[in-house]
Design a protein around this nucleic acid. Structure first.
Lengths: 236, 236
DNA sequence: AAGTGGTCTAGACCACACG
DNA sequence: GTGTGGTCTAGACCACTTT
C-alpha cells in the first residue's frame, strides 16, 4: 500500500483524523505548519494533501483564515419552482439571502435574446449572495423582464419567489437550465472568497410561465462542494 | 497589473500563446522544463499555472504523456432519450463506445432499490467507456433490469438505445437524474487515465417507461472539461 | 506583534513513455 | 537510453488575519 504517493497517504490519514475526532462541519484544522510537523513532511506536500481533500469536497478554505471541515452536500433542484430558502430549510440547514443591489440597466445581448427583448431594452439586474449555515455558497445575477415585472426594484427582492407568486401572480413552470463545471477565477472567485482556480459550478436558468413568457434569466456561480443537483422529468 | 501572482500571469501568457499560435485541440504543449525556461521560472510555479488552466478546462493531461489543448465543450442532455452517439455526431464530433463487459450479478442495495427489485435479485451490469474524437471522456456502469430486458447480455450493447427501442420496444420517457461535482480518485481516476483529484462530474440516471417501469440505472463519471449539461423541463 | 496562508526558488529522485 | 511528468525537500518572503 505504501506504493501510493505520500500526499495521498497524508490525505487518508487526515481523513481518518477528521472522522475519528468527529470534527463538526465548520471546525478549523490545525495550521499547515503544525500539520506538516505532525506528519513529518514539508508544507508543500502537506498542502498537496489538503488540496486533494479540497477537490473532493471534504474540506474547504476561506480567504487566508485556514482550512475547515465541510458540511454534507445540499440537494438542489433547479427545475422546481420552489424557493432556495425553502429547499435549504427543508434539509435542516439555515439559509440566508443577501441582496447586493438591484438596478435598471441595458440588457447584454445574450440576456436580451434569452428574454426575447429588443436589443436596446433595459432590464432589472438583481445581484444576490446566498448563504447556508452562514457559509457563502453561491452568488447570482438575475435579469428580470420589466414587461412582466414593472417596478420590481421597489419591492423586497430577497424573497423573489414569494414576490413573483403573491404580488405579480406569476409561477415559473417552464425552465431551461444549463450546468457547466468551471473554475472560479478573477472577480467571481473574489466575490465568493475562494482562491482563483477553485472548481465551481456555473448554472444558468431561464424561467418562463406555462404560456411561454420569459420572466427571468439567472446566472449562478456555486462552490463545487456544497451541492448535488437532482432533476426529475418526463418527456413530452 | 503585476500585483497578480506570478502563476496567474503565466496562465495569461500561456493562454495568449495558445490562441495566438492557433493551437488545434489535441495539440501537445512543450515540455514543462522547456516552458519553465521560456518564462524564466521554476517548474513548480509553471505547473501551478498549468494546473490553473487545467481546472478551467483549457488544457488537459493524459497519463504521463504531457499537456494537451482542450476541445470545445460538448452539450449533453441527460434527460432526453437520445443516444450519446447521436448527440456527439450532431455536434460534428466523432463518438466511440467501448464495451468493457457485461455480466449477470447480484444487485447492490442502492441499485435494487432504484430498480425496485427484491434484495437478492440479479441484474445485468454493463460497463462501457465513451470517447469523443478518440479522447476518453467518461466511463459508465449501467444496471439493466432483467425482468424487462431478458438475455440482453447476448445482444450488441454498444448501441443500447437502439437495442431498447427496436428489439425490446422500450423508450425511456421518465428520468431521475442527479449531478454531483466530485474529484476523480482511485480506480475511477485510473480508468479515466487522469490524476487522482482531478475534478469530475458524477451523473446518475434512472430510466423509466411512461408507465413507470424502472428499466435501467446508470452511473457515469465524466471529465469536468468536456461537457455542458442542458435540460429543458416543464412542471406538472 | 505573532502567526498564518499564499507564493516562490533551486534543487533532487523516480517511474514511466517514447523513440 | 533519454526525456518526461510526478513527487518531494528545505528553505524563503510577503500580505494578511488574529491576538
Amino acid at each position: 500500500m505504501s506504493d501510493q504517493p505520500l500526499y495521498l497517504q497524508l490525505r487518508d490519514q487526515l481523513l481518518e483524523h477528521m472522522t475519528q475526532g468527529a470534527l463538526q462541519p465548520g471546525t478549523r484544522l490545525p495550521s499547515e505548519r503544525a500539520l506538516a510537523e505532525t506528519f513529518e513532511t514539508t508544507r508543500v506536500t502537506l498542502r498537496q494533501a489538503l488540496a486533494q481533500l479540497e477537490s473532493e469536497g471534504a474540506i474547504y478554505r476561506s480567504n487566508r483564515r485556514g482550512w475547515f471541515v465541510s458540511a454534507p452536500r445540499l440537494e438542489y433542484d433547479p427545475v422546481k419552482d420552489i424557493s432556495f430558502t425553502r429547499y435549504v430549510a427543508d434539509q435542516g440547514r439555515a439559509p440566508r439571502t443577501e441582496v447586493v443591489g438591484i438596478e435598471l440597466t441595458p440588457a447584454p445581448a445574450h440576456v436580451a435574446q434569452a428574454l426575447r427583448l429588443g436589443e436596446v431594452a433595459d432590464v432589472y439586474l438583481l445581484r444576490r449572495k446566498r448563504y447556508v449555515d452562514e457559509r457563502l455558497v453561491f452568488i447570482e445575477r438575475i435579469w428580470l423582464n420589466p414587461i412582466y415585472l414593472p417596478n420590481i426594484d421597489q419591492q423586497p427582492v430577497d424573497a423573489l419567489w414569494k414576490l413573483l407568486n403573491e404580488k405579480y401572480g406569476i409561477s415559473l413552470n417552464r425552465k431551461q437550465i444549463t450546468i457547466t463545471p468551471i473554475a472560479l477565477i478573477g472577480a467571481i472567485a473574489e466575490a465568493l472568497d475562494v482562491n482563483s482556480g477553485c472548481p465551481g459550478l456555473f448554472i444558468t436558468r431561464l424561467g418562463q410561465t406555462a404560456t411561454g413568457d420569459a420572466i427571468e434569466y439567472d446566472e449562478e456561480y456555486w462552490l463545487h462542494d456544497v451541492l448535488t443537483i437532482r432533476v426529475s422529468t418526463q418527456s413530452l
